[in-house]
Design a binder for these strands. Structure first.
Lengths: 306, 306
DNA sequence: ATAAATAGTTGACAAAAGCAACTAAATTAA
DNA sequence: TTAATTTAGTTGCTTTTGTCAACTATTTAT
């Protein structure tokens, strides 16, 4: 038995009973879960036909027809003949339907609030983040470029988290030893110690308030800058985040009139290599080294700016 | 409208449709969700009566009685007269019942596997962690001491994550500025640079593979050590984790024959203060400082060891 | 010893859901 | 443009699912 699936099943069972959707009457109201789902669909979409409801909720059209009929009799919805299609009706909530839905909503909200009332701020944040993560991992629509936000103000926790990402991603991907993380910590300390808002910058790409990628420019002299800490969570590769980060970083160098920007990398980080080359960087040095439990090549790439 | 609850509702709707439990026939089998739930209860508990099933699943006893009757006719369960109670029967799965449940289980597993087939290792880990988090936050049983694991080997990502926790926890709790994180990074670099496995150690408390607390001992001389980075995720306070960490750290100092162990803290970290005092630390220095956007007292506590 | 509670069965019924035939309008193909 | 096909919605009929209350046989409490 696969542990991943059995853990997921266990969660599913837990959440099913947590959701409380197995009882006939939704929240002790006079309406069944199906009826409430229909009401909810009607309230959500500005214009909706019975057909659309049957499609969305996967119900029998005869069944839906009769529920709609009952709703009409109870005066909670209105049927407006569709202008485009004389067979169809647009369904919308009546005033009392809206009130009904509002009171149902209030009940759900209260029930939810009751369930999270003992959680503190951190726990609530944690809960929402986890839900967001699950939703995104399980829904077909993968995160897209527009879900990503970018910033370059450094907030508490940022640098630590980026150091962690370095250790986590490279530690898992290529078995770098702890020495690598120590090296990263050292370079970051150096960065912060000599930080000049005018000539240094670090960009972070965030998804759901979590850093998923970063890049930085650190000035070396007035004329030369180093590109550092270019990193992307493997889950978020291929969305154009790396390209955007690299572009912003090089743009910053041009803006600040650096004549040269260079980066140090190793022959192991091939994913990023291609991006560097596309951005115009060329290999200027390559030395074989044995370090951090590996044998690889230390490489330097340079990009001349005009 | 409260955003927290509305986000949770959104997740609930998503997960409800994801669970796929709203159709009459469970996984296209000949059994309804209720019937499968009953079968599942029977298979899970070694001995179970119809009454127990109605209690656990919150069903009508007449309804359950009839389903049991049908199961019996279909030969998927066995009814054994209870020895303790002549009114009751113990219900168990027959061989073909077990086969049936097995095939249903396989179907669920396949369905789940299908839904996660496009996720990579990182994403699956992420998914399970999130589910675990949700389950723990929403179920009454808070994490207990025995859910926490302790270790002191440093793995890739550990130090970065601890730096992140410092920034995150203090950044949120007391508005420390970024200078604090820079200071933490510096001290960690110093720790790693002078790290001696014999006289230095960092302990991490983990819950669900995530660091939730830590403490470290850093030797200063052969006779004196500094206690550093004592930190606990607010969610996990009050479980005895801090006490255990502090105890281990002081124990290490005794073991390594340090004559004195000291720590530097500020008048703001009152939660930890009490713990230090209980462990025998006494205030030896107190200086008012204006730093990191705050005015507070830098304090030194010492513990003499024999 | 008696009253109250409990495990399970059964009849009667209501609610929920599905299926198929139908009407009327819309779309597509010839 | 007409005929064939598809689609939105309705309705009759049916099955499935779930509820309620009355009943028997036992067990538990007093």
């Amino acid at each position: 038995m696969n542990t991943t699936t059995s853990k997921i099943r266990s969660f599913n069972r837990f959440y099913t009973s947590h959701l409380d959707i197995l009882s006939q009457h939704y929240l002790d109201s006079d309406y069944s879960l199906t009826e409430v789902r229909i009401l909810y669909e009607i309230s959500e979409s500005k214009i909706i036909t019975a057909q659309k409801i049957t499609d969305i909720l996967n119900l029998d059209k005869g069944y839906v027809s009769r529920i709609i009929k009952r709703f009409l009799k109870e005066n909670i919805i209105l049927k407006v003949a569709s202008l485009e299609d004389k067979r169809a009706f647009n369904i919308e909530l009546s005033t009392s339907g809206k009130e009904l839905l509002q009171s149902l909503n209030n009940k759900v909200e209260q029930q939810i609030e009751h369930k999270i009332e003992n959680l503190n701020f951190f726990e609530k944040e944690n809960l929402l983040n986890s839900m967001h993560t699950i939703k995104n991992l399980l829904s077909e629509n993968k995160p897209v470029q527009s879900d990503i936000t970018y910033r370059h103000e450094i907030n508490p926790g940022d640098i630590g988290y980026i150091i962690y990402l370095h250790g986590f991603i490279y530690g898992n991907e290529s078995d770098f030893s702890n020495e690598f993380e120590k090296y990263v910590i050292k370079t970051f300390y150096n960065f912060l110690e000599n930080y000049s808002p005018e000539y240094d910058r670090i960009w972070m790409a965030e998804y759901n308030n979590k850093i998923v990628g970063c890049i930085a420019i650190q000035h070396q002299t007035n004329e030369e800058a180093q590109l550092r800490w270019f990193l992307l969570d493997p889950t978020f590769r291929g969305l154009g985040i790396g390209k955007k980060l690299l572009n912003d970083a090089v743009g910053f160098c041009r803006e600040k009139k650096f004549k040269n920007v260079f980066l140090l990398t190793t022959s192991m980080q091939d994913t990023a290599l291609e991006m560097y080359k596309k951005a115009g960087f060329t290999l200027t040095e390559s030395v074989e080294v044995k370090q951090w439990g590996k044998t690889f090549r230390d490489e330097r790439y340079d990009l001349k700016l005009e």
